[in-house]
């Protein structure tokens, strides 16, 4: 009863968007999404995520020259009601004049699915998202989480070719968000629909995306799997936007970066002027300063339960953050040695 294998492959070609008034909020972008894949559009507020999603949905048209293709077929000028896309809005946009079942079955009714069949499909959808007891409830009698599930069930009930979600969890409180994130992940896997998910929450992006598209100021900064994005950010923006990152700047001499606190080995480094590199806080180990090639002085120490967060001064041009074992015994003011395993430092193109 689910929409297994109903997704399409999707291609955005040179899609730019200029709003009346002449501001180009989206630079020409090309993006390829495979059938059944879940892709997350991630980026800070105002970077153009919603705009991109609405171009895919058919709610807005890309600037002249841009094309949207579903399974290789140009759908750029097909209006949304003919595109067969499922959409989940941030505010859910449930129809207040219909019951839960009425909302979920609305798309089927539009498609003239007979009543009995419709009822079966609606029931199946409600089962799928775990709200099977709410059939005749009015939508203003639902909790936030329940509304979210109704919106989701409504969007997938017609077996859409693409499922589009715009920050579907933002309106919920944190604990509910975590729970629904897990549910959504399972749902996307079991449905197998091509899914585009917009969020500015990197945790959500990591948990849900087969691939993540990191956007900034109307352009794509990087496209990659969650671990590619995390461990091999393409540039400084991505490195700093995803997780915590220490940005190191210093002159390179072959594979060694010279820093105020000593030297750091960087794979693939080449002699040159100032280079920029990134290392994650959890990749840095704390050792005895004696004989260490890179040292610093503990500036602050915060116990976070699962780990100890230290800031270390004098190691680089600015203080660096280190996540150490929660059992480590150090004092503020101690001099410590820092180690970084091979391959954990990444050179950035500015």
């Amino acid at each position: 009863m689910t929409a297994n294998g109903k997704g399409v492959s999707l291609r955005l070609e040179n899609c730019a968007k200029t709003y009346p008034g002449g501001i180009q909020v989206l630079s020409p972008m090309t993006l390829e999404i495979a059938r059944g894949e879940t892709v997350v559009l991630l980026g800070p507020s105002g970077c153009g995520k919603t705009t991109t999603l609405r171009i895919i949905a058919g709610l807005i048209q890309p600037d002249h020259g841009g094309r949207v293709l579903f399974d290789g077929v140009d759908v750029t000028s097909v209006p949304i009601e003919k595109r067969n896309v499922g959409m989940v809005f941030q505010s859910y946009a449930l129809f207040p004049n219909m019951t839960v079942a009425g909302n979920i079955g609305y798309g089927l009714k539009i498609r003239h699915v007979p009543k009995a069949e419709r009822r079966k499909r609606v029931d199946a959808m409600m089962q799928l998202v775990g709200i099977d007891t709410l059939h005749d409830r009015r939508v203003d009698q639902l909790s936030g989480g329940q509304r979210q599930r109704v919106a989701l069930a409504r969007a997938v009930a017609c077996q859409p070719r693409v499922l589009l979600l715009d920050e579907p969890l933002t309106a919920l409180d944190a604990s509910l968000r975590d729970r629904l994130r897990t549910d959504l992940n399972q749902l996307f896997r079991s449905l197998g629909i091509t899914t585009i998910y917009v969020t500015h929450d990197q945790g959500e992006a990591m948990a849900l995306g087969d691939r993540i598209v990191v956007m900034t100021k109307g352009t794509i900064a990087q496209v990659g799997t969650p671990d590619e994005i995390y461990f091999r950010p393409a540039n400084r923006f991505v490195a700093e936007f995803i997780g915590a990152a220490n940005i190191l700047e210093g002159p390179l001499q072959s594979e060694v970066m010279l820093l105020p606190g000593g030297q750091l080995h960087i794979d693939g480094g080449r002699t040159g002027d100032t280079a920029v590199a990134m290392v994650r806080p959890e990749a840095i180990g704390i050792v005895s300063p004696d004989g260490a090639s890179w040292t610093g002085r503990i500036q602050t120490k915060i116990f976070l339960g699962d780990r100890l967060r230290l800031t270390v001064a004098e190691a680089a041009t600015s203080a660096i953050v280190v996540d150490a074992s929660n059992r480590l015994v150090v004092q503020v003011g101690d001099r410590v040695g820092l180690t970084v395993p091979n391959g954990s430092v990444r050179l950035l193109t500015s």
Partner: peptide, 14 residues
């Protein structure tokens, strides 16, 4: 929120 309701009905094919 007329616009969003309208868009959401449109996305369902109406």
């Amino acid at each position: 929120d007329l616009d969003t309701l309208d868009e959401s009905a449109a996305s369902l094919g109406a």
